[in-house]
Design a protein around this nucleic acid. Structure first.
Length: 319
DNA sequence: CGTCTTTGACCAGCGC
DNA sequence: GCGCTGGTCAAAGACG
């Protein structure tokens, strides 16, 4: 693949001094666009106050609605240019915060310090799961092969339609554990070495039937202590709370269950995941300049924010 | 025995 | 057209 991911907006983080600022917040948004053209269209004027945290942050809604300047927000965090997401560096983040894994409440992930979260949203719009399309493709091929079955992987006879992407969100988490518990069950279906990175990227798929959500997990090559988790798609089911202990009890009322807010789990899950660690952040107190944390803003919006956010994300998949 | 991980192979898409 | 890279498949093995 090229160094310029085709399915998202990427820009060189190392030549944009805004990143560090964002990164220091320990929380950032990165937009993942499926369309470069679209990303350029969305490129609103840079938030002039982004650098100074004042007003501290774009709202989650802003991010999801694409009203913010992706260019200023999309930052690489030790991802190879070929990586599909870009993040903010968090070098300045030295205070212990909750781990995303804590949210899973599995208990198997010790709270690792220095958690930083980044979320990314795509333009999305893809109803069809990429893997599904590929499955269809290969199934079709299988038939075309006349049931030979000798070949391990069947070759498609014709080109499938251009693969479409589900909406994606990425999280950066400082963790020693690669695969962070998030309450869902995942099956690893692949691992690949990533260009320009010594760390492989792992591919996971939600094990729930008919749920096409996938996630990728990779370590930042710049900061090996940081795990970058990218979710793709939206869960069409609730968090299997009975599994592995889980976080059911931890769920804030406003984000308790997917679907309650008007859609399947994805944005809610995201918010939930963001919210919990950030709660700890808030508790940490002096973590952010002037006591302002990104989550504080989120808390301000809390329910309303989700209401703003969710429809913007969910309506795309409404029938 | 069911579930999950590992791993090599294959494919698509892109740039040159 | 070729090579590179990301993404996925699926058999084999590991594990509880």
């Amino acid at each position: 693949m090229s160094d310029e991911p085709r399915d998202l907006y990427y820009h060189d983080p190392f030549h944009d001094d805004r990143h560090g600022i964002i990164g220091n917040t320990g929380f950032s948004f990165s937009a993942i666009n499926d369309s470069k053209a679209d990303s350029s269209m969305r490129a609103a004027p840079s938030p002039p106050n982004l650098q100074g945290f004042d007003p501290p942050y774009m709202s989650f809604t802003d991010c999801l609605n694409g009203s913010l300047d992706y260019n200023s927000l999309t930052t690489a965090f030790g991802l190879s240019p070929s990586s599909s997401e870009a993040f903010s560096p968090v070098e300045g983040n030295h205070k212990p915060v909750a781990n995303l894994g804590d949210l899973g409440a599995s208990g198997e992930i010790a709270g690792t310090p220095n958690s930083s979260i980044s979320s990314s949203s795509t333009e999305a719009g893809a109803e069809e799961d990429s893997s599904k399309s590929k499955k269809d493709r290969q199934a079709k091929v299988s038939e075309l092969d006349g049931g030979d079955g000798s070949k391990k992987v069947n070759k498609p006879k014709k080109k499938a339609e251009k693969r479409q992407r589900e909406p994606r969100f990425a999280f950066m988490t400082k963790s020693e554990v690669d695969h962070l518990e998030d309450g869902y069950r995942w099956r690893k279906y692949g691992q690949k070495a990533v260009k320009n990175s010594p760390f492989p990227r792992s591919y996971y798929r939600c094990t729930t039937q008919k749920c096409t959500v996938k996630k990728r997990v990779e370590r930042s090559f710049q900061d090996p202590s940081t795990v970058i988790t990218t979710y793709e798609g939206q869960h069409n089911h609730q968090i299997p709370v009975t599994l592995r202990g889980n976080a059911g009890g931890m769920l804030p009322p406003s984000v308790l269950t997917p679907g309650q807010m008007g859609g399947p789990g994805f944005p809610q899950e995201l918010f939930f995941q963001m919210a919990s660690p950030m709660n700890n952040l808030s508790a940490a107190g002096s973590f952010y300049p002037q006591g302002l944390t990104p989550f504080q803003q989120l808390q301000f919006h809390d329910y309303g924010l989700l209401q703003d956010v969710v429809p913007s994300m969910i309506h795309k998949q409404e029938p």
